[in-house]
Amino acid sequence: MINSESKEELVQNLRDAGCGMETIQDFLLYLDENQKEKQLELLEKHRRRLLSNVHREEKKIYCLDYLVYQIKK
């Protein structure tokens, strides 16, 4: 079992990764129940969500870069 200090660090890491309270609570529940596969699924789902956001923002950057290119041309 994980000690309380390690659990606090784990929770902080999840917060830093942008996880919401529901995700954190589910993760801790899976931790307590030793359901590593469920933990991994939860983290992968959050990772896909973050990556989707990155791609969405990246498209905006490309649009701005194109506009800058057109203005300088």
Results as ranks from 00 to 15, higher is better:
1 M>V: 15
1 M>G: 14
1 M>K: 10
1 M>Y: 12
2 I>P: 11
3 N>H: 07
3 N>R: 05
3 N>V: 03
5 E>I: 15
5 E>W: 05
6 S>E: 13
6 S>M: 14
6 S>C: 05
7 K>F: 01
8 E>A: 05
8 E>K: 05
9 E>L: 10
9 E>M: 05
10 L>Q: 01
11 V>M: 00
11 V>A: 04
11 V>E: 02
12 Q>F: 02
12 Q>R: 07
13 N>Q: 08
14 L>E: 00
15 R>W: 03
15 R>F: 02
15 R>L: 00
15 R>K: 07
15 R>T: 01
17 A>I: 02
17 A>N: 01
19 C>Y: 03
20 G>I: 03
20 G>W: 00
20 G>K: 04
21 M>N: 12
21 M>G: 06
21 M>Y: 10
22 E>I: 07
22 E>T: 08
22 E>S: 07
24 I>L: 02
25 Q>I: 00
26 D>R: 02
26 D>T: 05
26 D>W: 01
27 F>D: 03
27 F>P: 01
29 L>R: 10
30 Y>G: 00
31 L>N: 02
32 D>S: 08
34 N>I: 04
37 E>S: 11
37 E>D: 15
37 E>I: 13
37 E>W: 07
38 K>I: 06
39 Q>G: 00
39 Q>S: 04
39 Q>W: 04
39 Q>M: 12
40 L>N: 11
40 L>V: 14
41 E>H: 09
42 L>H: 03
42 L>K: 05
42 L>D: 04
43 L>P: 12
43 L>W: 04
43 L>R: 03
43 L>E: 02
44 E>H: 09
45 K>M: 05
46 H>N: 12
46 H>K: 06
46 H>Q: 09
47 R>Y: 09
47 R>I: 10
48 R>F: 08
48 R>V: 14
49 R>I: 11
50 L>S: 07
50 L>C: 06
50 L>N: 07
50 L>D: 03
51 L>F: 10
52 S>H: 13
52 S>T: 14
53 N>D: 15
53 N>M: 11
54 V>S: 04
54 V>W: 09
54 V>C: 03
55 H>N: 14
55 H>D: 15
55 H>A: 04
56 R>H: 09
58 E>P: 14
59 K>H: 10
59 K>A: 09
60 K>M: 08
62 Y>L: 15
62 Y>Q: 15
63 C>H: 15
63 C>M: 13
63 C>W: 15
65 D>M: 13
66 Y>N: 11
66 Y>I: 12
67 L>Y: 13
67 L>K: 09
67 L>A: 10
68 V>N: 15
68 V>A: 11
69 Y>Q: 14
70 Q>G: 10
72 K>M: 10
72 K>F: 13
73 K>Y: 11
73 K>T: 14
